[in-house]
Write a protein that binds this DNA or RNA. Structure first.
Length: 478
RNA sequence: CGGGGCGUAGCGCAGCUUGGUUAGCGCGCCUGCUUUGGGAGCAGGAGGCCGGCGGUUCGAAUCCGCCCGCCCCGACCA
């Protein structure tokens, strides 16, 4: 059989993940602990995700800007909960230019502190509102345990920061951007996600309410794929951001912030990958169609390549991303395996027999046998083929999630269920931290989502039995 | 920070216990020939401050000390 088998994802998912990411050429570890080199194949996916998000940010009225990587340490300390949340993960610069700095600089773990302290100067009147800005950049969080794409000391992301005159408007903004994340996750990354609200213990340090989208990975663990925060007036008060209303009253502004990172790429790997490697959704695939020429002699080679290049050109003309793998030092079988590992949605094989018959062999990564198709039909039908591949990945992932979503009404069901099967467990929760902590202590699962808007009191709490619970979704998470 | 492990060619490793002439193996890489429809074969070749510093010794990858780095488990993860 084939060589260089990947670890079995069903037996050792973490080993499978790291091998796929490395061998597909997405990323590798770099020199400093916990840092990562994003290689072209992985960065190419990130570029597609960036574009999908950025287009939607613009359509919803936002503009990009850029704040610096460093700011004075003292700035952070103005919002008590915020500084407490971040202080363990800060990278702090104490020296520059060969001398000790008068005041240390922090490398941003997120930019709320700097941005709100700056917004204070930009906002005077209700006429300056709303402020709808976003920035693309990197942040640093000194993580103890890191994983490629999922948790690295430095990572790439975007962070949106908006300021509004009313709580209602800010709240709407936070939910609107959550919806943008959900749309990108589902329609672009083909990852079905649950949109919800975080519990008090899981929310962002400094936020009034944190919203999240959560996906379910193939090993039964949940992954937070994006968060959007309604900040209330917390940062406005900490950094004294006020405006004069049309009524002449001075008020603090209401804020939001929202972020998504290249962790999404890790989510794609863990949602769609299989024992052969990656399966990349066509919308973010750096290569959507790979053409493998097959030949023996030089004459065959030039005849086959001529057709291969023609097909490539007409597909490229449709706006598709196509690669002809004309490397002469690898045989076809090697290329088949390699492009499957790299998750290219559609492969076209062309040999001398196909050239003679004006056909190609078409192979879908998502499964199914090889199919002989007339060349013209393959070219004309490719866009539709990729749309189906995109949909198939989503449908597969949704089916998996549905099959791994369970309900529990008693504590035994919840605890034993999480421990035995993983996946998502839905059960009523009274809202008290003690009940939440008990589940986490017993199962290592956390509340991933609560309903977007608080529910009317319902069934008794699965943990303590007290009435007035709302529906919580539990899972072990990354 | 606590517990455990590891630093030898691009990658993965052996050698170290019991010091000894030129430090090996697999993969990868380079050249040539034969191959090419599911991970090619043969032949030749290149590539090493053996993590660093110091010590013991006629002689150190190997023994001793110190240092540095990385990995795994735990604590942590807004």
């Amino acid at each position: 059989m084939s060589k260089n088998q990947l670890p079995d994802p069903n037996r050792d998912f973490p080993a499978w993940y790291i091998e796929v990411v490395k061998r597909a050429g997405m990323a590798e570890h770099s020199l400093a602990k916990g840092t990562m080199v994003a290689k072209p194949y992985g960065y190419g996916m990130w570029e597609r995700v960036q574009r999908a998000l950025d287009d939607r940010f613009k359509l919803t009225g936002h503009e990009n800007l850029y704040f610096p990587l460093f700011f004075p340490e003292s700035l952070l300390s103005k919002e008590a909960e915020h500084v407490e949340g971040f202080s363990p993960e800060l990278a702090i610069i104490t020296h520059g230019g060969g001398v000790e700095l008068e005041e240390p600089l922090v490398v941003r773990p997120t930019s709320e502190a700097l941005i709100w302290s700056t917004y204070a100067n930009w906002i005077q009147s209700y006429r300056d509102l709303p402020l709808l800005y976003n920035q693309w950049g990197n942040v640093v969080r000194w993580e103890l345990r890191t994983r490629l794409f999922l948790r690295t000391s430095e990572f790439l992301w975007q962070e949106g920061h908006t300021a509004h005159a009313t709580a209602e408007e800010a709240h709407r903004e936070a939910l609107q951007m959550l919806e943008v994340y959900k749309e990108v996750a589902e329609e672009v990354l083909a990852i079905p996600v649950i949109a919800g609200r975080k519990s008090e213990s899981e929310k962002f340090a400094g936020a009034a309410t944190t919203f999240t989208i959560e996906g379910l990975m193939r090993d039964g663990r949940a992954l937070q794929c994006g968060t959007s925060h309604f900040l209330g007036q917390n940062f406005a008060k900490a950094y004294d951001v006020t405006f004069l209303g049309s009524d002449g009253e001075r008020r603090h502004v209401w804020g939001t912030s929202w972020g998504a990172s290249w962790r999404l790429i890790g989510g794609v790997v863990m949602t769609h990958g299989d024992e052969r490697g990656l399966r990349i959704p066509p919308k973010i695939a750096p290569v959507q169609v790979v053409i493998i020429p097959i030949y023996r002699s030089d004459e065959e080679r030039s005849a086959v390549l001529e057709v291969a290049h023609k097909i490539r050109d007409s597909l490229t003309g449709q706006g598709l991303r196509v690669r002809v793998d004309d490397r002469d030092h690898h045989r076809p079988g090697f290329k088949f395996s390699e492009w499957e590992l790299k998750g290219v949605p559609v492969r076209i094989e062309i040999g001398p027999k196909d050239v003679a018959a004006h056909q190609v062999v078409l192979v879908r990564r998502a499964g199914g046998a090889k199919e002989q198709v007339a060349t013209s039909a393959a070219v004309d039908g490719m866009a539709g083929e990729l749309e189906r591949a995109q949909q198939d990945l989503y449908d597969d992932a949704l089916e998996y999630r549905n099959a791994h979503t369970h309900t529990a009404s008693t504590y035994d069901e919840l605890r034993d269920g999480i421990t035995a099967t993983g996946g998502l467990w839905v059960g009523p929760w009274c809202g008290r931290g003690t009940c939440e902590e008990r589940v986490t202590a017993d199962t290592k699962a956390t509340i991933r989502t609560l309903p977007l808007t608080p529910e009317d009191p319902g069934a008794p709490c699965a943990v303590c039995g007290q009435k007035g619970a709302e529906t919580a979704t539990w899972a072990r998470a990354y």
